[in-house]
Computed example of a mutant assay.
Amino acid sequence: MYHPYFRGKQYELITIRENAARLAKANFLPIIEPVRESLGGLEKALRAVCESGGKAIVIVNPHYGDHASGGISISELLSASFREHPGVSAGILLKNTMSVKDVMDCFSLHKAHSPAFIHAGFTDGKDLAAALGNKITRTMNIFIDDESSKLYRRHFKESTRVLIKDGFERRRNRDHPDVEFFSDLHITYADDYGMDGFGDFLTVGDDYSESGGPAYAIAIHLTYINAAADNAMYIYHFKSKRVDTPADPAGKFAEALEKLVAAVKAPGSSIYRTEAVLEFLELNRRGHFPGLGYVKKLSMQHHIETMAKFLP
């Protein structure tokens, strides 16, 4: 099963809401780390997930954003509005500042929402596994790759295990290559890592920032399955020609979009013609710039659609 990891900014939540039926049909299980104080967008996204018969994991103790000092309001939302929806689970982010007691207290507090553990720097795996005892077989353990070793993960081998890897290399837009390797975890997660599922941070990446600076270059990021490389996933970075000033974002988007259209229409193109790509083509036809947040949403949607089309 595929687990896309979203930080709960506006367009991430809109992506989940608008793709709720697609996520449910593909049996994808998104992980959401709320980062904004207002939870209205999160509630709308979760209601769409539930109405589509899907599932989601909501982190109740976020590491980033407005809830980093405590996620009481998130827990209250789950309890008040989603107690009767078994598809919505509480995610407990295991950080290096937590003790086993902290983890187990949070686990007990959210037991009505089938808690899942997201291992992100916690080190006392052996004692946590012992504290869980027989309950470990009924838990889901999600490991952030660069914050959990293979040895650490072995303590949870009797549970459902998921590995999350960040395939997106964070750089200034102007510094991205035209195309590069993204991930092969969708092929290797079971055989090479012994996992039951996998995930990534879509085309946004794990690095968190409250807001971006001025965009000197506009880039559109599109993933694709490379059949010539054993079906590994690669990513295009379609960049604007102009990169020296933050002026004219609409014109720079048109420059990047022109490159995307050429790649999509090239003979033998590996880019799936997803609904998101068709919308990019329509934006090019109309000469319309919808804003950078909307562009990011289409990029994430294309990634989800690509995963859904490739995975059985």
Rank of each mutant, 00 (worst) to 15 (best):
H176F: 08
R138S: 15
A130L: 15
G70A: 03
S108I: 09
D127I: 01
S79R: 09
K126T: 09
V179K: 02
L94F: 05
F182V: 03
D102F: 03
H186A: 08
I118R: 00
F122T: 00
S159C: 05
S108F: 12
A130H: 13
S183M: 10
R153E: 04
M104A: 04
S89N: 12
L93M: 11
I142Q: 07
R83V: 07
L151A: 15
H155G: 05
I72A: 13
A90V: 01
K101D: 10
A190G: 11
G91P: 04
R170E: 13
R172Q: 11
K135C: 12
F82M: 05
D66K: 09
D102E: 01
A129S: 11
V100W: 04
D102Y: 02
F143G: 03
D66T: 03
D146H: 14
S69W: 07
N134C: 11
N134R: 12
K126Q: 13
I187D: 00
S69F: 11
D178G: 06
K101C: 04
H67C: 08
N141S: 14
T139N: 12
M104I: 13
R171C: 09
D124V: 00
C106W: 03
S73K: 15
F117H: 01
G125E: 04
F122D: 00
D175T: 01
R172Y: 15
D145K: 15
N141A: 07
V88M: 07
D66H: 03
S75H: 09
L163H: 06
L77G: 02
H176L: 02
E84G: 10
Y152G: 05
G87F: 09
G133M: 09
D66E: 10
V162P: 00
M140V: 06
G133S: 13
P86I: 00
A116V: 08
S73R: 15
A90I: 04
R171H: 11
A130V: 14
V179R: 08
